[in-house]
Computed example of a mutant assay.
Amino acid sequence: MTDGAAGRRGPKLEPVVLADEERSTLERWVRRRNSAQALAARSRIVLACAEGGVPPVVGVAKDLGVSPDMVRKWRRRFLSDRLDGLVDEPRPGRPPVIGVEDVEAVVVATLEEIPKDATHWSRASMAQHSGLSKSTVGRIWRKFQLKPHLTETFTLSTDPLFVEKVHDVVGLYFNPPDGAIVLSVDEKSQIQALDRSQPVLPMMPGMPERRTHDYVRNGLTTLFAAFDVATGEVISSLHRRHRAAEFEKFLVKVDKEIPAHLQIHLICDNYGTHKTPAIRAWLERHPRCHMHFTPTGSSWINQVERWFGFLADQQIRRGTHKNVQNLEADIRSWIKEWNENPRPFIWTKTAAEILESLANFCRRISGAGH
C-alpha cells in the first residue's frame, strides 16, 4: 500500500486501529457542537484513517478538505501517543503533566459554561474551577485559540433575495454595462458640528495633540454622496435633513451632472427614503436611472461606505466646528480636494467567493448558543 499519490511509491503505512473507548472519545469530540475546531478536525482525521483498512493519505485529505501533510502529522501523532497526541505537542524526555481528560474539561468549560460571578472566564477563575495553574490554562487556551476576554459583533442578512442582490451588485462592479456609469449612493446622516469645551493643545515633540473629552454640539448636517466606482469621483450634496424630498433633490443633481448619453446605475441600501412612492415616480420619469439595492444588513457591499470612512477619519472625527456652516464648508473643501485626485477602490471578491465565505462562517457558528 502506498501513500496514495499517483505514480509515486511511498512507505507502507501502519494501519490505524482504534479501541472502542478511543473511537467513542473521538466521535464525542467530533459531535460536540462547541468543541474547539482544531481538536474536532484532528479527531476527524484519525477516524477517517481508521476506516477501510489503510485508506490513502491523499484520499483522506481530499475528503476532509485539508492538506496531506496535516493528515500525515496527526496520523503519526495518534499512532505514537494515541489520544494524548491530539491534544498537545509531545515533549521529549518529559511526560505530560496533565491528561487529555483535564484538557478536555478546560476546553468544554470555556466553551459551554459561564462562571457564577462573571460574564466570561479569566485565567484565574478557570484555574480555580479546574484545579490547574493559571499558566497551564493559558497554554490550553492558546493551543485551541480560545480567547474568552474578546468579543466581536456580526450581522447576518435576513434578506430573502440576498443571493440575487449580491450577484447583481458585484456584477456591476466587475462588469458594468456599456454606455453606463455605476454610482454607489448613500447618505451620511447626523454629522455633528462639534467644538471642544476648551482649546485643542497642538502636538509637540514627545507629546501628542491633546483635547478635552467633552464637547459642545453645534448642529447637524447630512451628506448625500454618489461614488463613481470606475473613477472614484464623487457627486455630493449637503442638506440639513435626510427625507425622501432631500434624496430626490440629490437625484436631480446627479441626473444633471451625468452626460445625457449615459445610463445611470445607482447602488443603494434599503433605507426607507430610497423606496418611497415619490422616488419611484421620479425614477419612472427618468428611465435612464436604474436603482439596485444591496441586501438588507449588508452595507459593507456598498463602496461609498468605505469612502465615508475616509471622510470621517481625515476630516470629521478630529475636526472642531463652531457651527454647521463651518462644518459644511470643511466637508465641501475636502471633497473638492478628493475629486482633484480621485481614487477608485479595487473590488476583488466575486459573488461566488462572497457567498462561499458566508457559507463557511455559518458552518463555523452553526449551533452556537445551543
Rank of each mutant, 00 (worst) to 15 (best):
W121Y: 09
I98A: 03
S133F: 07
P115Q: 12
V108L: 04
K143Y: 08
R72F: 10
V100Y: 11
V58C: 11
D88M: 15
D81F: 15
K116F: 09
T136H: 01
L47C: 00
R91Y: 12
L132M: 01
D81N: 15
V103Y: 13
V87Q: 01
V100K: 11
L64K: 00
R76D: 13
A124D: 11
E112P: 00
F144E: 02
P92M: 10
E113N: 08
D102Q: 15
R94E: 03
V107L: 09
V54C: 10
K116V: 12
R91H: 11
K62N: 14
V71Q: 07
H129N: 12
W74H: 10
I98N: 00
A105P: 01
E104K: 11
A127G: 06
G138I: 07
A105C: 09
P96M: 04
P115N: 06
L132D: 12
R94P: 05
M70P: 01
D84T: 07
S67I: 04
D88N: 14
A109I: 03
K73W: 12
G59F: 01
D84V: 09
K73H: 12
E89V: 15
H129A: 05
G85K: 15
A48N: 01
C49V: 07
K116T: 11
R82F: 08
V60Q: 03
E89A: 14
M126W: 08
L146S: 09
W74N: 02
K73D: 10
W74D: 02
V66T: 05
I140V: 15
V137Q: 04
V54D: 08
A118H: 04
L132A: 07
R42I: 00
